[in-house]
């Protein structure tokens, strides 16, 4: 960009690119955290379902903490205290760690609900055909329970994507942070926030549409 004499300058095409790039970072940190968090969350959900007592005493309270403490507090605490225990993570990595744990905490409950959604009788039918415990989980519980809680999972995923904006407090230049930078320079909060909002919408709308079409297909 040409250096200008005025301190404030208008919103230009370059800035749109800047926001677009930031949107990609939002997407990247979200996709990473949601994927990792879902895998870990499903594992926890299975533990909660299967381990009943031990899991209820160990995993459940930890997940409760991550589910109930505001994300922004978790992010700031983790980012500032991780170095003390020798973890030197940058803003991006810290964000991924916390968003992943947060996603896992939410997905754990969804996943447990999914397993519970499959009738005992259905699972006994699967086992009576000679399926092993794992074959029953993979071929019966996963598809049936997964479909039952898919809308809830999509809700979690879209929520985490929006909440990834909070990683901006650590200085990671995702969509919200980028907007703040531009607002400081251009003093056009209305325009810039609208554009940023449009980017968020553009990221989540295809996902909810695709999810809706999947649900419709499954409903037959």
């Amino acid at each position: 960009m040409e250096p200008t004499l005025t301190f404030f300058s208008g919103f230009g095409v370059n800035d749109l690119w800047f926001l677009g790039e930031a949107a990609l970072r939002t997407m990247w940190i979200s996709v990473l955290s949601i994927s990792l968090g879902t895998v870990i969350g499903v594992l926890f959900g299975w533990l909660l379902y299967e381990g009943k007592l031990t899991a209820a005493l160990t995993v459940a309270p930890v997940l409760d903490v991550f589910r109930s403490v505001p994300l922004i507090i978790q992010l700031v605490l983790f980012y500032n205290f991780a170095p003390i225990v020798g973890l030197n993570l940058d803003a991006f990595a810290s964000g991924v760690v916390i968003l992943t744990i947060y996603t896992a905490a939410l997905v754990a409950n969804v996943a447990r609900g999914g397993i519970e959604a499959v009738d005992t009788s259905m699972r006994r039918a699967a086992r009576s055909l000679g399926m092993t415990y794992w074959q029953d989980l993979r071929h019966v519980v996963l598809p049936i329970g997964g479909r039952a809680v898919f809308p809830a999972w999509v809700g979690v995923a879209l929520g985490v994507m929006k909440d990834s904006a909070l990683v901006s407090v650590l200085g990671y230049v995702e969509l919200l942070k980028a907007s703040q930078i531009l607002i400081t320079r251009t003093q056009e909060p209305f325009l810039i926030l609208s554009v940023a909002g449009a980017f968020y919408f553009a990221l989540s709308y295809p996902i909810s549409r695709y999810a809706a079409s999947l649900e419709k297909r499954w409903a037959q």
Binding site: D119, S121, M122, R124, A125, R127, S128, L129, G130, M131, T132, H139, V140, P143, I144, R147, W218
Partner: peptide
Amino acid sequence: NKLRQKLGMVFQQWNSFPHLTALENVAL
């Protein structure tokens, strides 16, 4: 699991796998 292959069972609830066609239900 091997022994159960000898023992077919049919339940009161029919327990069809809802995500599979009739053919896939039986072929699984």
